[in-house]
Design a protein around this nucleic acid. Sequence first.
DNA 1: CATCCTCTCTTGGTATCCCAAAATGCACTT
DNA 2: AAGTGCATTTTGGGATACCAAGAGAGGATG
Lengths: 222, 222
Amino acid sequence: MSQMLQIHDQLREMILSLDLGPGERLTERWLESRFEGSRTPIRAALVRLEGEELVRRDGRNWIVAPIDLGELAALAEFREPLETTAVRLACQRASEADLAAIEAMLDACQSGAPREEWHRVGTDFHVEIARLSGNPFIVKAIEGAMTRLSRARWLEVWTEPSREQAWAEHRRILGFIRKNEPDAAAREASEHIRDTRDRLLRSLTDDRRSLRARGFAVIGMR
Amino acid sequence: MSQMLQIHDQLREMILSLDLGPGERLTERWLESRFEGSRTPIRAALVRLEGEELVRRDGRNWIVAPIDLGELAALAEFREPLETTAVRLACQRASEADLAAIEAMLDACQSGAPREEWHRVGTDFHVEIARLSGNPFIVKAIEGAMTRLSRARWLEVWTEPSREQAWAEHRRILGFIRKNEPDAAAREASEHIRDTRDRLLRSLTDDRRSLRARGFAVIGMR
DNA sequence: CATCCTCTCTTGGTATCCCAAAATGCACTT
DNA sequence: AAGTGCATTTTGGGATACCAAGAGAGGATG
């Protein structure tokens, strides 16, 4: 694989895992030494990440995109029509094998599983459901939305009951698709997206001060 | 503005206006002489355009993204939930001034207007309506979808009645938003998107052979 | 001691250079 | 005449060189 793609993937991972704090400045020269490559592939990776809005220009400088809490409500508003459409289409188009694969994914996430696992599966569930719609534009939009949500979800303080509730909602959505009840599946999906939004907002607005203290640029939601 | 952005914009324009044929190969060296800049900014522009999926890798080469007629149906399926949501939100959030501005835009497109004008307004209408939703994610998604549709719309053979019908549908959507009738507006928007899809598909599948003859890579829709 | 100016150093933007790999074309074979 | 193998050319990937602009330190001046 080309060096540029390696750098892109590593840098992306560092950003999404909060190894690089939101708002942090990235100098091309630092990245150069960090990844032991020259500036050419590094700049290509940065331009690419800029397209994914994980990195941004600040004047002439590069910075890690700040987390914008103001986005969270808009993101839920965006996901709702798309995911309800996705589950409806999934009812028509998904095979039993597809659904079983997703159920297995949920099952694999036992209560003892590490935090990374819960985080990943909680994202992948929505992307995989979108994939069942068979519509690549819906898939890409949901991928983008979940990526945008990803860092905020690391910061969320997960309580056991809230996590359980989210998982129960996932299972209900899947169940209604399986029973081929598109209206019920869509209703569940809507509720789940709103519940998740509320949980995130409640958790993050409380902790915003402490996030700032960690040096993270967290904007919006005055 | 940086040279890279200039090159990006110019190249983007050339692609969207079909100055560069879909599927055409782009060598960095040719672009270098064409834009009288060195390869560094040109490569940055190409990486950027790759993110917008207007340019793509073919092995080690760069090519202008082919037009994929198979996308057209999926694109309509994607737009429908988003735009119906957008018009509903517009009913709640748009000011009279916003609506008047859009109406003025439609009015400015008289029957004698040049083809470019019709093409541009036909795209902008949808983007501006999306903007009234106040949701930046919806706006960007619609922008992307209309961009993806743009080249196919140049190839469409426009008949006077079909164009009139599209404009009448635009006006009806706007009218229902104005009268604050979200359900009616959403229904109109759905119908309009489907009608447009059907018109496009009918026109393009017929003419596919002639497009290929012009050297355009047009794939999908066996 | 505060302020302003200047000089330096670092940064990103651009041009150019080198290299390996892939394509091209040509000659030679059958 | 068609096919095959080798030499040459061209291409994109990466590294480096150079530059102008901006930030920051340090010194001169009030």
